[in-house]
Design a protein around this nucleic acid. Structure first.
Lengths: 241, 241
DNA sequence: GAGTGGTCTAGACCACGGT
DNA sequence: CCGTGGTCTAGACCACTCC
């Protein structure tokens, strides 16, 4: 059940056990066994139990009531797998559409006033500019232009960008953990240049989205401006406190 | 500095001390004193120090690096006060506009198929229906219709709804803590009925927003559908992991 | 090797909810 | 009153970073 020689921390093993238990044998709002019972059942200290529960509570699996006990939360499990941050790829899959991304432009440019402000860098510093077209079932849905500070992503290549989602590159290739995302939604019309790429008429109402992504040191590691077609695109997101 | 006879938990007192220290004397990315030093300086156990730091880390004040130390995060302090969830009132104030809310309709109705699905209740259960017009500097910006399950909010009155923001009523009058919010953005055009209320022409592009708010037991306690004028409205939000 | 954060223990007392 | 979660202690060993 719990292996004390395993290099995986006990509280993580315990979390996994408890999540399995909840998913397989428990109902929403059902009372769980007490911290002291978990402690003796798994032969770990109550401190370790509490550490495990603390994170399960944050993740929305359980809630606690002082003097009463710990209870299974009732989150819709099918939605629970959706990440808290937005992912075009994940969302399209979740509504049964086949997502595809075309990298239209990958270039190294010198930042202008606007970009340097958005990225919090000095005017003139080099940035990667990546323009991508995102399609669902081969229908163009969204046009994105992303700017990434060059010094945070040395050796970034077009090949890498084409190989996997940006968020995966952040975490796996550059150890950049996303801590904060600021987003801005507005309604706008589409420019002529954009209209051609996304195959719509100029002036069609569309959804504008701007996003700044911060790492743990709170540097902006990405600024993206997107235009999505207003007639077919719904942006869904979930906040968890 | 820390008062062990104070009923406020030590780790909370410690958090407050550390936040003051950070705000007054420290710079972003500056290294803080080690956990063991905090422990001896404030005469509390290292476990207590770690509990205090754990929450400061979640709140975005600090970040840690194993083997290196704990560092002050660099979040833009002016933005840090913005709540993670959206508030029309707060956002309007933050951009220097005077917000006002008019409650147009307050009624108790029987839920239809759509509303009962959105609220996760049985068809026909009673719900409050609240229609509000939101203005900034007396210009109509957004029209909101909210549905609240009657049994979660007994004795809810029009007077109370007019007196303060809904989120405040949830937490202060009904002890409903918001745990999860699902939102959906899309572009749409405005209906004739809505157009009259928000003083726009029928068919003007606008931003549609639907929101479900969940409490700690993961019951839906609010479903709101909003229409915001597309030409003047920007929806900003921040996610914190 | 010294210092840091990460994990873990065994045990204590308190505050709250229900019997 | 008892059982629950909430707070707190003193101390141990590990893993990582840097000199």
């Amino acid at each position: 059940m719990i292996d004390k020689t395993d290099p995986i921390p006990l509280y993580v093993q315990l979390q996994n056990s408890l999540i399995d238990e909840i998913n397989q044998n428990m109902q929403p709002n059902q009372k769980m066994i007490s911290e002291r019972e978990i402690s003796s059942k798994y032969e770990v200290s109550r401190t370790t139990v509490r550490l495990a529960l603390y994170e399960l509570e944050n993740a929305g699996y359980i809630y606690k009531r002082q003097g009463k006990g710990t209870f299974v939360a009732a989150l819709n499990r099918s939605k629970q797998n959706l990440s808290e941050f937005y992912s075009f790829t994940e969302q399209m899959i979740s509504i049964g559409k086949q997502p595809r991304t075309e990298v239209l432009v990958f270039e190294l440019i010198v930042s202008n006033q606007y970009i340097s402000e958005k990225l919090g860098i000095i005017l003139g510093e080099k940035v990667f500019r990546i323009q991508r077209l995102r399609l669902a079932n081969e229908i163009p849905m969204m046009l994105e232009v992303s700017y990434l500070p060059c010094d945070v992503f040395p050796e970034l290549s077009e090949k890498l960008v084409k190989s996997k989602p940006l968020y995966e590159i952040f975490s796996k290739d550059y150890q950049q953990q996303v801590k904060v995302v600021d987003e801005e939604f507005s309604v706008g019309s589409i420019s002529q240049k954009e209209a051609a790429l996304i195959k719509l008429d100029t002036g069609t109402p569309c959804l504008h989205l701007k996003r700044q992504t911060y790492n743990e040191e709170n540097r902006v590691i990405e600024f993206t401006s997107s235009v999505a077609r207003g007639d077919k695109f719904v942006y869904k997101l979930r906040h968890v406190r």
